[in-house]
Nucleic acid binder design. Structure first.
Lengths: 211, 211
DNA sequence: GTCTAAATCAAACGTTTGTTTTAAGCGACT
DNA sequence: AGTCGCTTAAAACAAACGTTTGATTTAGAC
């Protein structure tokens, strides 16, 4: 008998296809065919197509948010130890770096990242809902810490700037593999660390910009 | 007889539903029912579901890009007249302002904007393709002008920073009506001009940030 | 070897999908 | 009146959808 990794194979295939073609545009038949398992396996192991999406999200987002949460703890601890406000760059690095460096460590990470990018795209819908259930606490915490790091900035302003920052990151996540438009003489190939630093430079400048 | 505005009614209904639920998640029956026209009207007037999407995109994107193009012409003309590089803020204002101010003048603009946000979300797929066919020249031109405005910046760096900037804008476009996460004491209500200025402040600071 | 529970399988379920077909309605012209 | 072109209407189409079923196979316990 083939190893009983049917659930794993389904998660991998679904992650890839959901990311590439979208949730609604991907049929269970395409998924089960790619995973080389029976059509009924999805409903047997997960219950429904939507539950499969839920599992795909949770599998990568859970550990990722645990890492992020731990690194935010560090930033808060360092600030408390020295009795000062949290360091803005450390804060956003804690949020951004685990995300972008996924592609270095995890296999299939680019698919997950692209899927998250999609989740943020649809105002309503299954993908968004599943994603937000896990993401909202993280966003709120990042917002409050950012306000602490920039105490002179109005909260309302920082809210919108954080909106912009999240936009940059999510756009980067989904367009990572291939940029839809490449000017002459530009290559999209870049290593993760450089990209992280570039995004941090950009984001911090925007967050701290004078008004 | 009801006025023969069937095409118009279809465009309006499709724009709204595509934006709200996504292209694949929206059926022709839902569209024609919302438009109060016959099911066959879509295929009669447009040829196919995808052609209807194409028409929805073109209807708003064509005029919008014409405005943007004209404003970029202005920026270029001013720069040439004074024999200097284009002004960076004027450049990006020319690109951003017509987009955000759509919601003030056009009805149903928020739906179109949300649809565009979705178009950028899916790496492959119909929406993206239709959108990119009309957008690529505009992006390339904006990139070249930005390079002219910041001649000391490496093109590769500016390419990525422009990527970040587009991400902020597209995220703003689709999350405009309702932010998925609202911290305590924050309201998402804001007037268009203030929002435009905030986005410009943020974006310019990022584009010009030291390395 | 026998039994049991978990996993897989092929097949079919009833719906819904985008599209096509056929017929009818309507205004404008000769 | 009659006929032509354009538009709508209802019905039907094959195909694909997510899901369910009941039988079959597998792995491990006794």
């Amino acid at each position: 008998m083939r190893p009983p990794d049917t659930k794993q194979r389904l998660l991998d295939a679904a992650e890839q296809l959901f990311a590439l073609r979208g949730f609604h545009a991907t049929s269970l038949r395409a998924i089960t065919q790619a995973a080389e398992v029976n059509l009924a396996a999805v409903n047997y192991h997960f219950g429904s197509k939507e539950a499969l999406l839920d599992a795909v999200m949770a599998r990568s987002l859970g550990p990722l948010n645990q890492v992020r949460s731990g690194r935010l703890d560090e930033v808060e601890r360092d600030a408390a130890a020295e009795n000062r406000a949290p360091d803005l760059r450390a804060l956003w690095r804690a949020f951004v770096e685990p995300t972008l460096s996924m592609r270095r460590h995890e296999t299939g990470a680019e698919h997950f990242l692209s899927l998250v990018g999609q989740a943020l795209a649809q105002p309503h819908g299954a993908v968004m809902e599943v994603f937000m259930r896990q993401m909202t606490p993280m966003f709120l915490r990042l917002f409050e810490l950012t306000c602490l790091a920039l105490p002179e900035m109005p909260r309302q302003l920082l809210f919108w700037r954080m909106h912009f920052a999240v936009g940059s990151l999510s756009h980067l996540m989904r367009c990572n593999d291939q940029s839809p438009v490449l000017p002459a003489g530009i290559t999209a190939e870049i290593d993760v660390d450089t990209l992280t630093d570039m995004l941090l430079d950009y984001t911090l400048a925007g967050l701290e910009a004078p008004r």
